[in-house]
Amino acid sequence: MLRLTSAGRRTFVTSAVSMTTSKCSRLQGKVAIVTASTDGIGFSIAKRLAQEGAKVMISSRKEKNVNNAVKVLTDEGLTVSGLVCHVGKAEDRSRLFTETKLQFGGLDILVSNAAANPGVGPVLDSEESIWDKTFDINVKSTYLLMKEALPLLRERKSPSIILMTSISGYQPFNTLGIYSITKTALLALCKTVAEDLAPESIRVNCIAPGIIKTRFSEPLYKSEAANEIALAKIPLNRLGEPDEIAGVAAFLASDDASYITGETIVAGGGMASRL
């Protein structure tokens, strides 16, 4: 039985369908928020967390995208709700946490996946407005999401925060200069906050994807020439798939990673990143 109701910008879905697509139950009883989760990597992460037993609140800036994603996941028997949320707006973030608490009773897992890349080109050729917007969404909003999630996370037994950075945080992409800098900043944010929250047993980790086959990263591989350049940098000689990043997220969110905090897992097919 499926019930779908809409109240303004909110969309709540509950389902009594058996979760026939479950991979395992590592996250049974846990509640997760995944931002920017109606397509690409975010959608795959939301799906995987739900398949492993979590109740998941997905979000996006557009209600149509939220409704579509919620329908797809509930049709698979997964327990999700959806909410419109622009992570750069304080009122949207507040509503995201409030409604997650109302719908699912709390929060165990926060996945900060939302990102912006409003401009391409060398850093010093970019407009100040591009710098401001990229940092506001990619870094400042991530910081605020973590800060505002703390009251809920502190109520849970083994909470976890996962930040989506990028392999470009280690090895900047020439055409994505400012974006790459924000992803480097997230590496430092992860380590700093992980140390601060370790005494409370709240784990904080990063995932640094390489070139993943998503709409967001199409400029890096869409043309034949770009694809050849991309593949030349990847020892596995293929682009990554969103589900492969989702598997890493599910691991970090689970108790299998209970002794891991302040770390970054690079999933880039062997691309150069770090020693």
Rank of each mutant, 00 (worst) to 15 (best):
R3D: 13
A7L: 15
G8R: 07
R9Q: 14
R9H: 08
V13A: 15
S18P: 13
S18A: 15
T21C: 10
S25M: 13
K30A: 03
V31K: 05
A32I: 11
T38D: 00
I41L: 10
G42V: 03
A46Y: 07
Q51F: 00
K55N: 04
M57Q: 07
K62F: 07
N67H: 14
A69Y: 09
V72R: 12
V80N: 05
S81K: 07
V84R: 11
K89F: 10
E91D: 11
D92Q: 00
D92K: 09
L96D: 01
L96T: 15
P118I: 05
P122C: 12
S126E: 15
W131L: 13
D132L: 11
K133D: 15
D136E: 15
S141V: 06
S141D: 11
K147I: 06
A149N: 08
L150K: 04
L152C: 02
P159E: 03
P159H: 15
P159Q: 13
P159A: 15
Y170C: 04
P172D: 00
P172K: 06
T184A: 15
A188N: 07
L189D: 02
T192L: 05
V193Q: 10
A194I: 11
D196T: 13
D196W: 01
L197W: 02
P199A: 08
S201P: 01
I202Y: 04
I207K: 06
A208S: 11
A208T: 03
P209C: 04
G210Y: 09
P219T: 01
K233I: 06
P235W: 01
N237R: 14
I245P: 04
A246L: 06
A246F: 00
A249N: 13
D255N: 13
A257M: 02
S258L: 09
I260G: 09
T261S: 12
I265M: 07
I265H: 12
G268F: 00
G269W: 10
G270K: 06
S273P: 01
S273F: 10
R274N: 14
R274T: 14
